[in-house]
């Protein structure tokens, strides 16, 4: 059983014919070639596949592509602005770079998307609010300290 669905990914419309059992994660990665969204556990525990669905962070591995028909999907690929003067990184990407908040980098796209949703709702969060917002994103390298600092830095708050 297949269905034709329409997705607005990072602002651009896409029409994709998908088997009903395919997840949005697999469609993003394999049909649309957007491999910035990572597949970690594939069962909603690790947060590596965090994307924004109509502005809200979700695990793309726990959404069937057919359920996303007609939605706005934002992935890590849509954050940096590409203009005539080159690529301009998003403030979260800048701060993750500056503060060394990535080691292996596998969790980073999901972390940044979860942080982006937080800052859209709460532009100057407390450290506790940051930790609460990324509770569903697992990092096995950094111990989270630099990630939390980078999110606070992007929100223009003082870094300890």
């Amino acid at each position: 059983m297949k269905r034709l669905i329409r997705l607005y990914v990072n602002g651009e419309p896409h029409e994709v014919l998908v088997p009903v059992y395919r997840t949005l994660l697999d469609v993003l990665r394999e049909e649309l070639g957007l491999t910035g969204t990572k597949k970690g556990c594939d069962v909603g525990d690790c947060g590596a596949c965090t994307i924004l669905l109509n502005g809200e962070p979700v695990n793309a591995c726990l959404v069937l592509a057919v359920e996303a028909d007609g939605t706005q999907v934002d992935t890590i690929e849509g954050l940096a602005q590409v203009g005539e003067e080159g690529v301009r990184l998003h403030p979260l990407q800048e701060s993750f770079l500056r503060l060394g908040a990535a080691q292996c980098g596998f969790c980073t796209p999901g972390m940044i998307m979860a942080a982006r949703a937080l800052l859209a709702e709460n532009p100057s969060p407390s450290e506790e609010a940051v930790r609460f917002a990324i509770a569903g994103n697992i990092c096995r390298c950094t111990g989270y300290t630099k990630i939390v600092q980078a999110i606070l830095y992007a929100a223009n708050r003082e870094v300890m």
Binding site: G44, G47, T50, L53, E56, P57, V58, N59, L62, V63, A114, A117, F132, A133, A135, G136, N137
Partner: peptide, 9 residues
């Protein structure tokens, strides 16, 4: 309950 991502679904 779970994470923000899970609670959104």
């Amino acid at each position: 309950l779970g994470s923000v991502q899970v609670r959104n679904r």
